[in-house]
């Protein structure tokens, strides 16, 4: 009887079984994690807002509220705020803001608007120039927090250029006729966006800005000098 050592490390069967095990367990863990994440990123509804519950992906009815992006004391990073915020950066869920002249969109109306906006975003291929949540093309600005961009605010240039008096209206005007308001040599093409689609897109952008992205993009819109720099 031979007493020679056996080499498991050079045995194909050992590696084959290990490969099968590793793949299987990693896949099962991913599925487990996916179930956990799914529960956390399901879209909220007005009841959550009424109950002052923070959702990672809030209800489309956030379009009725004033929203912001504040450093949160507990999280240690910037978090979107809905309906105003306290000193710690937590949402108050109270202060409203008119969206195309109204701040009483029902759940159904708001859901339909965001859905229309998402359909438009896909139908017009926004993501092959812009990034959304940081994913997409790099030919145009990131849209994750576009709603909060100072360019569309009172002190920004876009309301004056488009002859409008609110963020929502300025964005909708630009989206319908981007060629009329060139911001840069790199102009946005005319994508034949209708007034209805533009309203949906703006609702979609506003709701996207309230998604808790773990502090991305960091310091968005916080540097005053950068906000209204000349853009050619």
């Amino acid at each position: 009887m031979s007493k020679r050592k056996v080499s498991v490390w050079t045995d194909n069967r050992f590696w084959q079984r290990s490969a099968a095990w590793v793949t299987g367990v990693a896949a099962v863990l991913l599925i487990w994690l996916t179930f956990d994440t799914m529960g956390q990123i399901r879209m909220g509804n007005q009841k959550d807002i009424n109950a002052h519950i923070d959702k990672r992906v809030p209800s489309p009815t956030v379009i009725n509220y004033k929203i912001g992006y504040k450093m949160n004391a507990k999280r240690g990073l910037e978090v979107p705020t809905i309906g105003g915020s306290d000193a710690n950066g937590n949402s108050l869920f109270t202060i409203k803001q008119k969206f195309f002249g109204r701040d009483n969109y029902t759940q159904k109306e708001a859901d339909a608007l965001v859905n229309l906006g998402k359909l438009a975003e896909q139908s017009k291929n926004c993501m092959d120039c812009h990034t959304l949540l940081g994913n997409g093309g790099y030919y145009a600005p990131d849209l994750t927090k576009a709603w909060l961009d100072p360019a569309w605010g009172k002190n920004g240039p876009m309301q004056a250029i488009t002859g409008t008096h609110s963020r929502a209206e300025a964005m909708a005007a630009f989206l319908q006729h981007p060629g009329r308001y060139p911001m840069h040599a790199r102009r946005m093409p005319n994508l034949h966006i209708t007034a209805r689609e533009a309203k949906g897109l703006v609702a979609f952008l506003k709701q996207m800005a309230t998604i808790d992205t773990n502090g991305f993009p960091r310091g968005f819109g916080k540097i005053k000098e950068a906000n209204y720099a000349e853009t050619k």
């Binding site: 031979s2 020679r4 056996v6 045995d11 050992f14 079984r17 290990s18 095990w21 590793v22």
Partner: peptide, 21 residues
Amino acid sequence: LIVLPMFFIYFQEKKRLKNKQ
């Protein structure tokens, strides 16, 4: 979870190879 059970596979295979030898 991913790596530790490989020890079990290792010893099982070692036993198999020894028996075979």
